[in-house]
Amino acid sequence: MTSNSSGMYPLTAAIQHEALRTHSAPDGAFSVGEAHREMQVHRDCRLDECARKATAFQTLIDAGRVTPDSARQPR
């Protein structure tokens, strides 16, 4: 199992495989933990090109975990 640098949100091989397989929007809402994992897996995707990352990003905004920088381009 791999994880981010802090080890807080472990990524299983199944989650990595599933997330890498699709960039489409999820069928339902992400939990905050799932959103963190999706952001890790889709870190190289642009927000305006990957619906899955965009959904995860919006989940983190709604949860107060992320404050977007309006001066930056979506990534």
Rank of each mutant, 00 (worst) to 15 (best):
Q16E: 15
A29T: 08
S70F: 10
V41G: 08
C45Q: 01
R46L: 08
Q40I: 00
T2F: 14
K53I: 14
H23E: 03
C50R: 01
T67Q: 14
Q73C: 14
C45E: 02
F30V: 00
S5P: 10
R52K: 13
T22H: 10
T59Y: 09
R43W: 15
E38G: 05
P10V: 02
V41Y: 14
E49L: 13
M8W: 14
F57L: 04
G33H: 09
R52N: 09
N4R: 02
D69L: 15
L11Q: 04
H36I: 00
A71P: 02
K53R: 03
M8K: 14
V66G: 01
S6T: 12
A29I: 07
A29R: 02
H23I: 00
R21S: 13
T67W: 10
R52H: 01
A29N: 02
R37V: 01
P26F: 05
E18S: 09
P26Y: 07
R37Q: 10
G64I: 10
A35C: 02
T59N: 03
E38C: 04
R65N: 11
G7D: 02
T55W: 06
V32L: 08
C45W: 10
M1V: 09
Q58H: 06
T67D: 13
T55S: 11
A71D: 04
R43H: 15
A63F: 05
R37I: 00
A56N: 00
R21T: 11
Q16Y: 11
G33A: 14
S70R: 06
T22F: 01
L11F: 00
A54V: 04
R52V: 00
G33Q: 10
S6N: 15
L60F: 05
L47F: 04
S5Q: 12
D48H: 03
H42W: 08
P10D: 06
M8R: 14
S5F: 07
N4W: 05
N4K: 05
V41H: 12
E49W: 08
V32D: 08
V32N: 12
T55P: 06
H23Q: 11
S3Y: 11
P68L: 06
C50Y: 03
R75E: 02
S5V: 15
D27P: 08
M1Y: 12
D44G: 14
L47V: 00
D48C: 00
S5W: 06
A35E: 02
T59G: 05
R37E: 02
H36T: 10
A13K: 14
M8S: 13
F57T: 04
G33P: 09
A14I: 07
S24T: 12
R43Q: 14
A13D: 14
T2C: 11
P74T: 04
T67H: 13
I61N: 05
S70Y: 06
A13Y: 09
L20Y: 10
Q58Y: 05
E38Y: 09
H42R: 07
S6Q: 15
